[in-house]
Every structure is written in C-alpha cells, then in structure tokens.
Design a protein around this nucleic acid. Structure first.
Length: 231
DNA sequence: GCGACAG
DNA sequence: ATCTTGTCGC
C-alpha cells in the first residue's frame, strides 16, 4: 500500500490540535507496555503481531499479557510509523481486561519533527496517558548523559529550544533510551516514571517484557504454521 | 545539494 | 522489525 505524505501530514496536524501535555490526573496503579513484530518484516503485506503487557506499577509484577494479529500493508516510513503500527496496537488494546492508567509505547512521543510520534498518536486516539520510549533518536539535540544508570540529559528542539524529552541511561555504560511524553503527561513526569521502571536492563520493564512476550508468541505462531503445512 | 532517518 | 554463536568488556 502506498502512503500519501500529504494526507498523512494533514492527519498529524489535525491530531496535534488534540494533544494535551499536562500533569497526570490520577494515580498510576497499572502500567502497560506494548510492542509489535512481524512474521516477515521484509515482505510488504505481512502479518503483524501486537502485544500488551500490564504491570502493577508499585511492584512491576505482571497482571495481564495479551496479543493479537493483523494484516499490515502500510510500509514503514520514518516520521510516519504510527500509520503502520497504531491500528494493530488499538485492536490489541481493546482486548485487555485490565485497562492501564498509562502506556509506554515503543517509539517516540513528541520528540518528533511534527510532535506526533507513535506514542502521541496512540495516546490521542485512545485518550490515555502515554510515554514514548525509543532506542534511537529521531528528532532533537541532546548531550550524552553520564555513564551511570539513572543519568539523563534533555532532548531539545533545535528550532524552538523547548525540552521535548530526555535521553535516559537505564543501565551503567549502556546506550541511553529516548523518553518523551506522548499525551496527557509532562516531559518531567515521563522521565520520573521511566526511571522507576528500570530493573537493571537497557529498557524499562513494560517495554522489555512486551518485547520478550512477543518473541515467544511469534515463535509459537511460526511453529504452528509449519506443522500445519507439512502434514 | 547532502545527510539523517523511531519500527 | 528478523536471521544468529561466540566473544569481549565491565
């Protein structure tokens, strides 16, 4: 499927009007992590697998895990990731029994050329507080944080000098992750919460667990598919 | 014009 | 985003 940049940008500008970067309104009890993978990432129409893992924020214990699949035809284009991945994230989110008070999304929030990273896009569509946590920078300038776990430095918009988020070192001497608010939260709160989600790994727990869960699910699906075609 | 470019 | 073992450094 082709993608109209003109229409996509227009859609992003429309969604931007609904963005709310304001302090959290209620206490975070349940926190969700989500991620996507594909059966064949190099094929164009391909089957995507989406997953959500819900954790109790205070203990980081898993409360619920769920996944769903969907045919994905939209290609990945930097700056327009949400158009490829949000539909499946929404489909999976709707299956949850335990709705989280906040969702950590694999990708950026407002640290995006038009402030509409996947975390922001999903947060606005679902009207839920979100934080974006990406492994690589997409937009904004930052200084390398100190080498210790817990160190951070702001991601600044080169045009407006606004703070879009933070580069955060979750583990000693390991590459930082890039944290920015998605919707219904502030940059400072996003940083504060992500720091509480560290378990000594590079990624915050919700994201790490969603990713691990997906790997297991994916192997199972591929395995079952093989058994089915050879008997 | 060139480089950079989440997943 | 996937395929993959060992290996090096802290």
């Amino acid at each position: 499927m082709k993608i109209s940049f003109k229409k996509a940008e227009r859609a992003q500008r429309e969604l931007l009007k609904k963005l709310k970067l304001r302090p959290l309104e209620r206490e975070i009890k349940l926190i969700g992590g989500c991620d996507l993978t594909f059966i064949d990432p190099y094929k164009n129409p391909t089957v995507g697998i989406g997953a959500f893992v819900i954790l109790e924020f205070s203990s980081l214990k898993v409360v619920e895990e769920i996944y769903d699949t969907m045919e994905v035809k939209v290609p990945y284009v930097p700056g327009f990731l949400a158009f490829r991945e949000v539909p499946l994230l929404v489909k999976t989110y709707l299956k949850l029994k335990n709705k989280p008070d906040l969702v950590v999304v694999d990708g950026h929030g407002i640290a995006h050329p038009r402030r509409l990273g996947i975390a922001t896009h999903f947060g606005i569509v679902m009207n839920v507080p979100t934080i974006g946590c990406a492994k690589k920078i997409l937009y904004g300038k930052f200084e390398e944080p100190c080498e210790k776990a817990g160190c951070s430095s702001p991601i600044v918009d080169p045009k407006t000098k606004e703070i879009l988020g933070y580069a955060v070192r979750m583990r000693d001497r390991v590459k930082p992750v890039f944290v920015s608010p998605g919707n219904l939260i502030t940059p400072e709160e996003s940083l504060e919460i992500v720091l509480k989600l560290g378990r000594g790994y590079k990624l915050p727990e919700p994201t790490r667990l969603a990713h691990n869960y997906l790997q297991t699910v994916r192997k199972g699906i591929i395995q079952r598919k093989l058994e089915r075609t050879e008997e």
